[in-house]
Simulated scan of single mutants.
Amino acid sequence: MLLIRLIDGLNEVVGRVVSWVAVLFAGLIIYDVVLRYVFNAPTLWAFDLTKHLFGFYFILLGGYALRHQAHVRVDLVTGALKPTPRRIVELLGYPLFFFPFAWVFVTQSYTFALRSWNQGETTYSAMQMPVYPVKIAMAVAAVLLLMQGVSEFLKLLLNKSEENRNVG
């Protein structure tokens, strides 16, 4: 199904691109530690920037993680079930739990980001970095997560096997 391939492909690309933020994040931490402890010249900006990068990294990988079934799951019930009842429980779980949560996440993070943008919100540190990029990323991540949930639900509905669900 084209919609499934598009959503999966989008989250795959976002996940692979955002994963490189970890390299940048690690480099900045090493840079700051070396300046602080070797040269006794700490930066004013590195700590805030690494917090922002970690926020981008952590939040934007939600859809990618769902695509690869990497989220924490409660398998106490479903783990003991045969494939068909497990599929039914998962099918019910999306409209009962996932979609309502994801919708609240989308709407509230959008409101949160819009307010931050309109206020020109910044950090309270000496650098006063803008906060709204991370909050906008949260809204984008919520949409990506909701879209991936639609993809996973459609895969279940169309009875795609577990192997096919994890392959691009």
Rank of each mutant, 00 (worst) to 15 (best):
F25C: 11
T111P: 03
A139P: 02
A142C: 13
S125Q: 13
I7F: 09
H68P: 01
A65R: 00
R5H: 15
A22K: 07
K155H: 10
D32M: 07
A70T: 01
R115E: 09
P100V: 02
I136V: 15
G79W: 06
Q108I: 07
E90I: 06
G15V: 00
V14D: 00
V13P: 02
Y124V: 15
K51F: 12
H52N: 13
V23Q: 06
G63K: 02
L92N: 07
M127S: 15
R5T: 15
V104F: 13
F112L: 02
S116T: 04
T107A: 15
V21E: 05
M147F: 15
R165T: 07
P130H: 07
A46E: 13
G168T: 09
T50N: 12
A142V: 08
K160D: 12
G62D: 01
Y110L: 11
S109K: 01
T78P: 04
V89A: 11
L10W: 08
L76R: 08
L53Y: 07
K155D: 08
L144P: 00
P133R: 02
W20L: 15
A26D: 11
N164W: 14
A65T: 00
A41W: 01
V13H: 03
L2Q: 14
G168E: 12
L154S: 09
G63R: 00
F58I: 01
V14H: 01
K82Y: 11
D8G: 02
F98S: 02
G62W: 05
M1L: 13
A22W: 06
M1H: 14
E121S: 09
L76M: 09
L3K: 14
Q128W: 10
I30C: 11
H71L: 05
G15L: 00
I29C: 12
